[in-house]
Design a binder for these strands. Structure first.
Lengths: 201, 201
DNA sequence: CTTGCATTTGACCGACCAGTCAATTAGTAT
DNA sequence: ATACTAATTGACTGGTCGGTCAAATGCAAG
């Protein structure tokens, strides 16, 4: 087994960047190969189709996201609410970074693909759905810890985690539509106060 | 002048339905013409390009949305909070209807196009951005009325309206990704409690 | 009946699409 | 060296893309 297949990785990275900048449908296999400095035959040596490349891309970069970004935001020495706040900060920094690098605010890489392909490719839809569920699991655990510590009143932590993800996806979509990452700063904080199923309400 | 140009209207309606079901990039001009029962030359007689058709489509159906759906939800005899609740109900009913009719939950027609084309076509991006702003204007007015009546504490009504739109866009995106309109029911209500810039917080 | 414009047709264009394949090259194991 | 496989090349296919165009048709005013 080869430890890191260079060509395969370059294809994945090129596809990820191109899809993020311009969407799945508007990026061709040829262009992905050109950016990776590879011929088309090599693409189909490593991936049976554009769809399969996309599935691999989603899995591998989500694992990287969890290991690097998420592990830092959700680290246990922070209080639960600090973790959610760090998550929000990460989103703002990422949107601002892409704005500086590309001149455009590109939104959420997963939300973009979910929006474009959920109705077109059932396999990809299910994959992104399961990634979103994994994400909300981390958020839900954080919320449960917050409830146990008394930081927030009891609530439906699973539904609240889903609602928080929904809000941040919507915020990123609006930031993309406005082409302005500052939207995240202006309205992002409200994610901390979203609650579903509190006994009081 | 002809009062209602049948061919043009059929092209717009076909494009709207196809774009909503499958996205801009994955629907060709040929297919739009086929559904409208028209040859390609007719398409380019009425619209100089696919982009221009899309701009016309956005404007005309947004006007229709405001006149029919929005005017009903935001009618003055309802209390401000009832209007927001009616807005949410409309969204749920619409997502459920498309699920029943097409077997798929398709999300927000404008959010979908915004996500796909904001980074690809600056003109379309600006158009959708301005439609979103028009939408938030109605919400902001409702929030200001709620503040004046003492239904809610004072807040940054403009930012809160944007946050509410963001949340509902996110909810529709997750409903689409989950392919389940019930998501809207499960977490939608939280939109009523979103606040930005309250003096207390 | 004629003029003139709006509408519609359907063939056509070059470019690009995802995907195929036989042939070559590189690397490894014996 | 040999043999086997993995990796890579680059030409190729059939089909679709957005868009063009000259010719035909419909229609209304004089």
């Amino acid at each position: 087994m080869n430890q890191t297949n260079n060509t395969r990785d370059r294809l994945l990275k090129s596809a990820r960047d191109l899809f993020y900048a311009r969407s799945y449908g508007h990026v061709g296999v040829k262009e992905i190969c050109d950016m990776a400095g590879v011929q088309k035959g090599s693409f189909y040596h490593f991936f049976p189709s554009k769809q399969e490349l996309t599935l691999a891309l989603l899995d591998e970069y989500f694992a990287e996201l969890k290991a690097n970004v998420f592990a830092r935001a959700f680290r246990p020495e922070l209080t639960p609410l600090q973790r959610l706040s760090a998550w929000l900060d990460n989103i703002y920094e990422f949107q601002k970074l892409t704005q500086e690098q590309t001149g455009k605010t590109l939104g959420c890489p997963y939300g973009n693909i979910a929006s474009e392909l959920s109705t077109l490719d059932e396999t990809i839809r299910q994959r992104i759905d399961s990634l979103f569920i994994k994400l909300t699991d981390d958020v839900r655990n954080t919320l449960e810890e917050a409830v146990q510590k008394g930081d927030i009143p009891p609530c439906d932590t699973a539904a609240t985690a889903t609602a928080m993800l929904a809000y941040l996806e919507g915020v990123m979509l609006l930031a993309k539509t406005r082409n302005d990452p500052e939207i995240v700063r202006r309205i992002g904080d409200a994610v901390l106060h979203i609650r579903i199923g509190t006994t009081s309400a």
